[in-house]
């Protein structure tokens, strides 16, 4: 069973704020899965390279050229709060 403290620490890294009840419910579900994950321990992977991506070919880059885009204004409009072209958040200091 995962210690509550570990769960809270993980939640804080994930920027999640769990209520007491959520922590209770989730710690069981998380522990169950982590326990399941631990069956990977016994599998022999000697000599195997990790797969990060199945189509991992060579790095592909776009041509460095200007492309017209009219999305910026609509993206700013989509922000929960904005002041002209600045997205606003609560004061930092």
């Amino acid at each position: 069973m995962m210690e509550k403290e570990e769960l809270y620490k993980t939640a804080s890294l994930a920027r999640l704020e769990l209520t007491e009840k959520e922590a209770d419910d989730l710690s069981q579900a998380v522990s169950q899965m982590i326990e399941y994950f631990s069956m990977m321990e016994k599998i022999d992977v000697t000599g195997l390279e990790p797969t990060t991506h199945v189509s991992a070919g060579k790095n592909r880059v776009r041509k460095d050229e200007i492309v017209e885009s009219s999305l910026a204004d609509r993206m700013i409009e989509a922000a929960p709060e904005h002041d002209d072209r600045f997205i606003t958040i609560p004061h930092v200091l």
Binding site: A14, R15, L16, E17, L18, L26, A29, V30, I34
Partner: peptide, 22 residues
């Protein structure tokens, strides 16, 4: 924290926690 906590459902939170943990 509050936006994520109020905005995500339980299954999503579970998977984020698992992913963050591993």
């Amino acid at each position: 924290q509050k936006s994520r906590n109020e905005g995500f459902g339980d299954e999503v939170k579970l998977r984020i926690l698992l992913g963050t943990y591993v």
